[in-house]
Amino acid sequence: MKRDIILSGVGGQGILSIATIIGDAATRAGLNLRQAEVHGMSQRGGEVESGLRLSDSEIYSDLVPVGSADIILSMEPMEALRYLPFLHKDGYVITSSSPFRNIEPYPEEKVMEVLGSMDNVVTVDLGKITKENSMPKSANMVLLGAAAGYLGILSAEQLMESIRNVFAPKGDGIVDMNLKAFGKGQEYGRRQ
């Protein structure tokens, strides 16, 4: 079994933390993993993308080939669409529906129109969920929770174990907040 995932968003939205959680879970599960990160200049409020490849057999390329991503997981709706050529024809887009506006004009209407026209799209209102639950810093874990049911190669329990593991050095409060956020995302994902 193999899963190619494109993580996308804007620098500072926490996509590398999502990658770290999935990477930790995959390694604990004994899966092979390649994760291509972006460091340096592109972090300064620019577009950020990280490719994650998980497989029970050997993986050669660090980069996800065109047309092979099972999931595009995005913290930002326009950033989800930027990487569409990498999506498999039957793949899923799981994205926040809350735009990050640091460009003018932001093509919100058209972005939503394209997302609405596609078959396998799950939009998550991260802005609303994090506000209602007072978890502004855990939006990324809400998104991961919403995507948990679609990953296929890792269970929600394995991901939660890795959330505990990865956030443990930051204290119990941070672990609990992120687990709660993950749970909120799961609830939302199940309703879709």
Partner: peptide, 16 residues
């Protein structure tokens, strides 16, 4: 051949 193309509405988001 990609199944999907980048939609025309997508604009660059340069670092700042």
């Amino acid at each position: 051949v990609p199944a999907f193309n980048v939609p025309e509405c997508i604009v660059p988001r340069p670092p700042a």
